[in-house]
Nucleic acid binder design. Structure first.
Lengths: 134, 134
DNA sequence: TTACAATTAGTAATTATTATCAAAACTGGA
DNA sequence: TCCAGTTTTGATAATAATTACTAATTGTAA
């Protein structure tokens, strides 16, 4: 199956890469609408799935209610804010993780792994301090 | 805030621990109904949140559409099936992960981390083989 | 007991996502 | 270029999971 690069796809892809964030479908919808006001939210959802299946973007299936998509398809880990659900990329040395232990874990055939660092992002830390003062 | 242990809470907690699985609210609802047929699904949702805030159970905020809850609150990692979304517990040596690199990552204050091994569980592997034969 | 607070069952509302479908836009020959 | 077939789109309906609301019930502590 060959991917046809429509205008909609082009702009969705461009805006996600431009943002350098891990956007949800509706956040991306808002950005794309500026260039293509008549685009449908369904088109954004549809194409995010298609683009991630084609390997042009990544799909984060981590925490939070909404799916988020990653502009960076190279191998990396994430850091995630428990308060606002913001996600950032991380590069961490992963020495010692490809062990026999993992490879045979519970009879699973392993396709990959991900390390998620969980914490509170700088913005939410500031907010929390302000809240305390009240 | 002190946690009042109601009948509903007791049974929800008991059934989750008994299952030794990572159940979603509706799966647990089905189990609990056998002992308490008039319980409401909303009560299950409500109490799963309360129990996890009280630290009596864990909340998995990982992949898949539904939230899942963990009978085991001790420190451990997970292995997760990309096909059926089943989750199992794992104990893996995590040497070399508590590095300065992580502790100061992107200005976050780190509260923890989780390693998720991703793969296909034995059951889904078997199903996939059967599918191929067709 | 008796008043007050917490919890419950039942249901409505909300949120995120997926499905449906007719219209529009592409594609690759004749 | 025109046409037939395929894809994709926009609009909207449907679904799934969760949360909010509310009156009734239950527990608690004086």
């Amino acid at each position: 199956m060959q991917l046809r690069m429509t205008n909609q796809r082009e702009i969705i892809l461009r805006e996600l890469k431009k943002s350098r964030q891990h956007l949800s479908a509706d956040e991306l919808y808002d950005k794309v609408k500026k260039y293509m006001p008549r685009i449908s939210l369904a088109t954004v959802y549809r194409n995010l799935e298609i683009l991630s299946e084609a390997g042009l973007i990544g799909k984060l299936e981590i925490s939070g209610r909404q799916k988020r998509f990653d502009y960076d398809v190279t191998d990396h880990d994430h850091i995630y804010c428990v308060v606002c659900h913001r996600v950032d990329n991380l590069n961490i040395e992963r020495q010692g993780l490809h062990t026999k232990e993992i490879k045979s874990a519970k009879g699973y055939s392993i396709t990959g792994y991900r390390l998620e660092i969980v914490g509170i992002c700088p913005v939410c830390q500031k907010k929390a301090k302000k809240e305390k003062k009240k």
